[in-house]
């Protein structure tokens, strides 16, 4: 079973992402901010990561940069899931190494479709 890490400071968003992806047959682990997410990713090999941008501690873009510096996460798909929708922010995400950008609110089926496209 493939493992997905969801990083968001909102417990309800984590709960919704987790429920949506578990129903689609994935194992999901959660983290409340970028620092915890980075540690979770280091201790649990993940096939895909979905992260928010604005979080206390470490934000999403900083976490992506830190993950991309690790050999094991050079090519792992990382999706941003955020309220931020400006082109400038998306460009920053792309430059940091994000694989894609999903603007909240997310549609559960769309999220499952995107995840399946990326990791099957």
């Amino acid at each position: 079973m493939k493992t997905i890490l969801t990083v968001d400071d909102s417990p309800s968003i984590r709960q919704m992402v987790s429920f949506t992806l578990k129903n689609a047959g994935y194992e999901v682990i959660e983290a409340g901010d970028g620092n915890v997410g980075l540690n979770q990713a280091k201790s649990n090999p993940c096939n895909l990561i979905i992260t928010d941008q604005n979080m206390p501690g470490m934000d999403g873009l900083s976490m992506i940069k830190a993950l991309r510096s690790l050999p094991s996460y050079k090519t792992t798909p990382i999706l941003m899931l955020t309220t931020e929708s400006s082109d400038a922010m998306k460009q920053a995400g792309r430059a940091a190494g994000a694989t894609g950008w999903i603007v909240k609110p997310f549609n559960p089926q769309t999220m499952v479709d995107v995840v399946r496209k990326l990791i099957g």
Binding site: Q53, N54, T83, E84, S85, S86, K90, G93, R94, A98, T99, G100, W101, I102, V103, K104, P105, F106, N107, T110, V114, K117, L118
Partner: peptide, 16 residues
């Protein structure tokens, strides 16, 4: 302002 949305219709998806 971190939130630009004015309603709860589905946000867009961009794959890079």
């Amino acid at each position: 302002n971190p939130v630009a949305q004015n309603n709860i219709s589905q946000g867009g998806v961009d794959l890079f």
